[in-house]
């Protein structure tokens, strides 16, 4: 197999480095689709390549060669993959497979537990207000999703800010955002290099819901303020009651977001204009994923050709090419 086989193993590094800048620049809905789909495709391609490399070790086992009727000599003299590399691929594939299965199991059982709880919540409405002093709000994944808001959170926000919160959580529920984050998390479990991509998807679904809430209320500063105040309400120290003077407009430009966590970044993003579509960036990511897929296919074709050749050699009395 050619060196091109290693490309799908390296491209996730590029994707990992690009994930956060993409999450910040692209419109959040397209960023979510793009990053989640890319994570799945890149994880698929890299796992396929590991599988192919592992196969090159397996085909050198005499028993396998005997069963498959191919010439061991032809295989080992024509395959550029060295045996240690092939064996390393076997180990990596087994480890990644194990981690992915565990992640699938954990996420699956968490989703099932959440769905069961979503059905058990009182009432039939989508939104459930729970009597709880701690300020908190979340969407329980399920079919349908349920939105839980504590009375503490309700009290911490003004009426227009509550509308932002509910519009945000409704967006999570309407677009089944948990499916995107789950897909990206599983891809990252299969290939740990993709972890930054999975975190970026976690961020872009929040941004997606933020932008929906801003669009529905028609007031970006209001949406930004609601998020900031809700976040401060959830921290141990409750926010000071500073009255209507606490407006985000007091700061004309968002401070530097270097090293800032997701919540300040979301607030800053809402203080600016909505992100515009960037076709060039989109195209670059699609190209990256396509290169990865084509390389994996190429590697598969190489291995197939090699085995065909070795099989032909084993059936003819004088193997050519030796």
């Amino acid at each position: 197999m050619h060196l091109v086989v290693y490309l799908p193993l390296l491209l996730p590094v590029v994707a990992a480095a690009a994930a956060r800048p993409l999450a910040d620049r692209l419109p959040p809905a397209s960023a979510t689709w793009l990053l989640a789909a890319s994570a799945i495709a890149l994880a698929g391609a890299s796992s396929a390549v590991l599988g192919l490399l592992a196969l090159t070790a397996l085909v050198r086992i005499p028993l396998a060669a005997a069963i498959g009727h191919w010439s061991l000599h032809v295989v080992s003299s024509n395959d550029p993959t060295s045996l240690p590399v092939a064996l390393a691929a076997c180990v990596l594939l087994a480890v990644a497979g194990g981690i992915a299965c565990r992640a699938l199991w954990r996420r699956g059982s968490a989703l099932i537990a959440a769905g069961r709880q979503a059905r058990r919540l009182p009432g039939t409405g989508k939104v459930v207000i729970t009597d709880d002093e701690a300020a908190d709000a979340y969407t329980l994944p399920g079919w349908p999703c349920r939105i839980v808001v504590t009375s503490g959170m309700m009290r911490a926000l003004s009426q227009p800010e509550r509308r932002v919160l509910l519009a945000h959580e409704r967006a999570h529920a309407a677009w089944f955002h948990y499916l995107f984050t789950t897909a990206a998390r599983l891809a990252a479990a299969a290939n740990p290099l993709l972890r930054p991509v999975a975190s970026a998807v976690g961020y872009t679904v929040e941004r997606w819901a933020d932008e929906r809430a801003a669009a529905i209320t028609g007031d970006r500063p209001l949406a930004a303020r609601a998020i900031a105040r809700a976040a401060l309400a959830t921290t141990a120290a409750p926010p000071r009651r500073s009255g209507p003077a606490a407006v985000l407009g007091a700061v004309t430009r968002a401070p530097s977001m270097r090293g800032a966590g997701p919540v300040p970044r979301r607030v800053a993003a809402l203080m600016g204009p909505p992100p515009r579509p960037r076709l060039l960036l989109l195209a670059a990511v699609v190209l990256l994923v396509a290169v990865s897929g084509v390389s994996a296919l190429e590697a598969a074709r190489d291995l197939h050709a090699l085995l065909e050749y070795a099989r032909a050699a084993s059936t003819s009395p004088h193997p050519s090419g030796t």
Binding site: R185, I227, A231, T234, T235
Partner: peptide, 13 residues
């Protein structure tokens, strides 16, 4: 995976 499946309005600060 509890934290991961809940789409929280705001994460910790």
């Amino acid at each position: 995976d509890r934290e991961a499946v809940l789409a929280r309005f705001v994460s910790g600060l």
